[in-house]
């Protein structure tokens, strides 16, 4: 809740608390920034002090330069990776939510199929990939499938949990009012599952990027791929460490950005009603 008017004079304790809060707000982004700057400075110094050649560990400004000079190549690859990431995330949402809804329509369906979803989840994707490589021809389809397998499980399991954790009394209320199966889903189960789904989505967002990169790594040598992972492999072969670092930084930044965007979406959707999105009062 927003306090519109502050009292004219705060007692020392309250004033101290307000000061403390302001300080913490600034510190929460300033401190990580300072640590990061310090780390980059240290990295640079280590390179200089030890006279490390640039093909082993390039100095930060060289990486930044490469990011600029190789921009066309790197951002082109980033786009390829992003395409796989977002497509597989989209498919994970559709598949995860779809399956979760199916599961909650019947306990029997859930009991029958949920174990297999777990099997799919716990088998390392790297180990399945050779099979996918044999059965699927299209490069994009291959990567998508891999990335999807990695990303869909958190959405499925979280959404299933959410759809099943509806308040008992609310369930009775819908029954008393003669709600149809569809009405229960639309007006009760889906909204109740929203916070759980969004939690799963946040995890899946990161996983779909990891899935896209890992899949390309495994598929890498087969040629046509052109995402960031193949840039990294390629740069590794050529001892082009600056480009390797630049690609790595791009992947990290993408991951951070995906997380932030999904957190924002989650906050906007839940801020009015769900505990997780509420600011601490008092």
């Amino acid at each position: 809740m927003v306090i519109e008017t502050l009292p004219a004079r705060l007692d020392p304790e309250e004033a101290k608390r307000v000061r403390q809060e302001r300080l913490e707000r600034i510190g929460s982004w300033l401190l990580p920034l300072l640590i990061m700057l310090f780390a980059i400075w240290l990295w640079d110094r280590i390179c200089v002090w030890n006279e490390i050649p640039r093909y082993i560990l390039p100095r930060p400004h060289v990486v930044a330069q490469t990011l600029y000079t190789d921009a066309a190549l790197l951002f082109g690859s980033l786009l390829v990776t992003l395409k796989i990431t977002f497509l597989s995330l989209l498919l994970a949402v559709i598949g995860g939510v779809g399956l979760a809804v199916l599961f909650t329509q019947s306990k029997w369906v859930e009991m029958s199929f949920f174990p297999f979803a777990i099997v799919l989840q716990v088998t390392p994707i790297v180990a399945i990939f050779p099979l996918i490589n044999i059965y699927v021809d299209n490069q994009t389809a291959k990567l998508l499938l891999c990335s999807w397998i990695v990303a869909f499980f958190p959405i499925l399991s979280n959404t299933t949990l959410g759809l099943n954790s509806v308040d008992r009394n609310l369930r009775d209320l819908f029954r008393l009012n003669g709600a149809t199966r569809w009405q229960k889903l639309r007006h009760l189960r889906l909204p109740a599952a929203m916070p759980y789904f969004l939690g799963g989505l946040k995890i899946a967002g990161g996983l779909s990027l990891i899935g896209a990169v890992v899949a390309e790594f495994v598929a890498g040598s087969s040629g046509q791929s052109s995402g960031l992972a193949s840039r990294i492999i390629e740069a590794g072969y050529r001892l082009n460490a600056p480009r390797l670092f630049a690609a790595l930084i791009l992947i990290s930044l993408t991951g951070i950005l995906i997380f932030l965007v999904l957190s924002l979406v989650s906050h906007l959707l839940l801020r009015r009603w769900h505990e997780s999105a509420l600011k601490q009062e008092r």
Binding site: L173, N177, L188
Partner: peptide, 30 residues
Amino acid sequence: GDCTGFVFQEPTLLPWASVFDNVWLPLRLR
């Protein structure tokens, strides 16, 4: 079914829905 109303021990409202939507719910389901 239209002729009985039920009030639970807890308010049992839809937390994501406005007051209006909560009161509208039984009619909406009809």
